[in-house]
Amino acid sequence: MLGRTASSLYWMSRYMERAENMARLLEVGYRISLMPGAVEGHRDEWRSTLQSSACDLAYAEKHDDITAAKVIQFLIFDEDNPSSIRASIKTARNNGRAVRTALTRDVWESINSTWNELAQVKPSSMTADRLPVFLDWIKQRVMSFRGALLGTMLRNDTYYFSQLGNFMERADNTARILDVKYFILLPKATDVGSDLDMQQWAQILRSVSAHRSYRWFYRDSKYRPWMIAEFLILKEEMPRSLVFTYYWTNMALDGLGQLYGKRYDCHDLAQQTYQRLKSGNMEQIFQSGLHEFLQDFITANAALSQSIATNYNFP
């Protein structure tokens, strides 16, 4: 396989995952903006949406103030923002197009029809009331893409590079969401949070579609901040937790290692991070600093991405 093909598969999956994550973050922002302003100003919610999606700096370069309309425009349609939904789907589709021959017809048609339909959506049509339906549609399209990938691709290097992109993007996304709000997750003397805290915790869980599964998993009617952190970092049962994404990242790298009969430093890096998560416990993490832990993770994840690119000759 060409190094460029591997790279395109990787980024195709990464950008599809990014589009889905962005849709989720926007959903949360939208929910909060509907709530009575008494709890908190909208602007802070949209600001944290921008931060969680790592788009805050790029946004500030273009806009002076934060308004719902501008944020939505920037995060959904603005092609100058490489992480906007439209730019993500476009990049994913361009990568898919470049490696069209490596994809099954189902995968390609799923990604291509998503782009074709999205290209028809006029930014001016995206009024607040249509936003939830649109975001749902995006999530469904990405899930259909992933379903086609899982259901039709041979389990060879094509599949492994796609999986790597998917899970490394997800790891980055979950870590950022936690890091933006890490301060409200720190254990306090009392586990009774204010209304505001409750809402913020729920928001974190929602942004990774975990508000229901959290209750099922912990069988607890209350949100407890350290458990939320634990759920999203250390629980392998949670499909967007850091440990889960690294389990799959390692599976994909092992698959490549076996197929090619060679292991590189990316294998060691991924294994180290996985072991750290697997043997980790929240108490320790809180003691040495949640923020520091997440920052380290984000850096290590980026270093792994770099290492994979080098080891497999991405252009």
């Binding site: 396989m1 060409l2 190094g3 460029r4 093909t5 290097d157 000759n313």
Partner: peptide, 22 residues
């Protein structure tokens, strides 16, 4: 057959090669 772009191919020791994952 592989679909290459220019930077997937390179000349070395008097032959043409493509950059692969291996």
């Amino acid at each position: 057959v592989e679909l290459c772009e220019g930077n997937d191919l390179f000349v070395s020791d008097g032959y043409l090669y493509m950059r692969t994952t291996q």
